[in-house]
């Protein structure tokens, strides 16, 4: 009905303005703008560098610790039956455990699993500052060590010797005993990889700087970033978990297509 198009459209516009949901939509748009503006404002104020050494940050961390961690780790981080002592674990350990969402622990289990991060970056830094102020321990790494610009081949060799038995040669992770597992390393930030090596979270052994030197750790990170950024040369990697997924794929698709072809070959043409 081409001759009706214009009046209908005009009516539609007017009807839209008088629609019962119009006011709700208007309020929603308004709220969105105010919220957006507020968020932009608050991030711009909060992005100021957290000074790890300042007494104020440490005090802040102490309060956060007392409210969120002390139930298991004790008021002075001296540990209890439910959680280990944190004296001497260093800022790196706190940054890893809290920064990946593993702490605070959701429940006791075979191991603390990664979940949505519970604290903001400033709160994590404050917690780390307080724990680091208790006793010396590994600091949060920074700078060149995390840039992923090291020697990929050396990193790959070190990874195969020290890490691949648990984390899989492609960093895809693997099973351990009694429900524990080594997590996949794809997409893990360079800082968290470094901190995990230095602190040995949960059942992972510690790889201190005498064992794998800081520049070698940088190479390991480089290798993992290389894996993240380059597709598998062998085609679809199916999760890189080897015979399980590859075997299953062949069973289903390889044998499936052979069965389908056999049925087709022997069926009578119509």
């Amino acid at each position: 009905m081409p001759e009706n198009r214009t009046p209908t459209a005009a009516r539609g516009r007017k009807a839209g303005r008088r629609h019962p949901l119009a006011s709700i939509a208007l309020i929603a748009i308004g709220l969105l703008f105010t919220g957006g503006a507020y968020a932009a404002f608050s991030t711009s104020t909060a992005s100021a560098e957290t000074d790890m050494a300042s007494q104020q940050t440490i005090e802040e961390g102490k309060k956060l610790f007392a409210a969120n961690c002390a139930t298991c780790h004790g008021m002075g981080a001296e540990g209890s039956e439910d959680g280990p002592s944190l004296i001497g674990v260093g800022a790196a350990s706190v940054d890893f455990q809290v920064g990946t969402g593993r702490m605070p622990l959701q429940m006791q289990g075979p191991q603390a699993e990664q979940k949505p991060v519970q604290f903001t970056d400033e709160q994590t830094a404050a917690l780390a500052a307080w724990v680091a102020s208790l006793a010396p321990g590994p600091a949060i790494p920074e700078g060149e060590l995390l840039d992923g610009e090291g020697d990929t081949a050396n990193g790959a060799e070190l990874f195969r010797i020290n890490c691949a038995m648990c984390h899989n040669v492609a960093g895809a992770g693997g099973a351990l005993t009694e429900g524990k597992f080594a997590p996949s390393l794809s997409g893990v930030s360079a800082k968290h990889i470094y901190e995990a090596m230095v602190t040995g979270p949960q059942n992972m052994p510690v790889f201190n700087d005498m064992n794998i030197k800081p520049e070698d750790k940088r190479d390991v990170i480089t290798y993992l970033k290389y894996l993240d950024n380059n597709p598998s040369p062998g085609g679809i990697d199916l999760g890189s978990i080897g015979p399980v997924s590859e075997g299953l794929f062949l069973w289903i698709f390889g044998l499936g297509s052979i069965v389908a072809l056999t049925v087709w070959i022997t069926a009578k043409s119509n």
Partner: peptide, 21 residues
């Protein structure tokens, strides 16, 4: 010695919880 570099290991390098290959 450490695999693969062949650097000898001091007892003091081996901190609690460490695993050396």
């Amino acid at each position: 010695a450490i695999d693969p570099s062949g650097r000898p290991i001091k007892a003091s390098d081996v901190t609690l919880g460490s695993a050396f290959h």
